[in-house]
Amino acid sequence: MSSVDATRVAASTRGATARGLLVADWRRMRGTWLFPLTVLGPVGVTLLGVILFLLRGEYMLKPFLSGEKSGFMVVTEQLGMIHVFAIGLGAALLASMIVDLEHRSETWKAMFSLPVSRAGTYVVKFVWCAVLLAASSALMTLGYSSLVVWQRLGAVPWADLATLGALVWIASLPLLALQLFISTALHNQALPLTVGILAPIFGMSMSDLAPWTPWTLMTQALAYATGGLAAGAQTESLTGFGPAQVCTVAVGTTIVLVLCGTLALARREIR
């Protein structure tokens, strides 16, 4: 009995570790749509590219054949905006799904009756969504490259594709943080999802919006990575953020928003 007591005392002050939180979330997500969605997003965008090439490939290939545009430009001109929109939508869906898992099963109360840090729980959920979005972005890069290979658009521009994928991903983190904040605060996911679907549609194309908002920041990233063309830089909407600016704004906004969400959950009355 005394040895049991000893282990109890030794274990008594230990809360869940960061690894424990990460693995627990992974176990929860199994069997949900979070993983399939991560794959389906980029696959869908790539398939759209395939359809576009099949329907109007001749027209699209003309500037490449005449040497006006690179293969990279040809694919991103068609799919860049859709890619950015898909990542933005993905951020909203992933954020909603990862917390709705807890809302629906009413597991917040059970979880926070354990030695589990509320702040840690929130940050880990953000990290998981960010990781899944990164995976989506990597797959999106592969999708572009497969189109380049299929349409014989020259050597695969890995560096450009990697820059595009990474920069759009970093620029999507503030949006993810915002969506996770709203989705966690509200039990009913109708509003967070509506915002998550509608706001990018308007926000990403809104020329009046400041370039640092979560939505316009993603367009800024796309504009830089594609040399402005794919994002429609001809209009005055883009003030032209460089990659350093995109990263600084993204990281700054993300930290602020994640901090807000963490505090909100930490102070929340769990009923």
């Binding site: 008594s12 869940a16 424990g20 627990a24 929860r28 898992l101 109360k109 059970a110 354990l114």
Partner: peptide
């Protein structure tokens, strides 16, 4: 809380996971 176990109001469980997997989530945390 490491010394406390609780069932607060209705039982909380992830419907899509098996009973064992539900317990495994908690076992991972603890």
């Amino acid at each position: 809380m490491r010394r406390v176990g609780a069932l607060v109001e209705s039982p909380s469980y992830y419907a899509h996971l098996s009973g064992r997997e539900n317990l495994r989530v908690i076992a991972t945390l603890l």
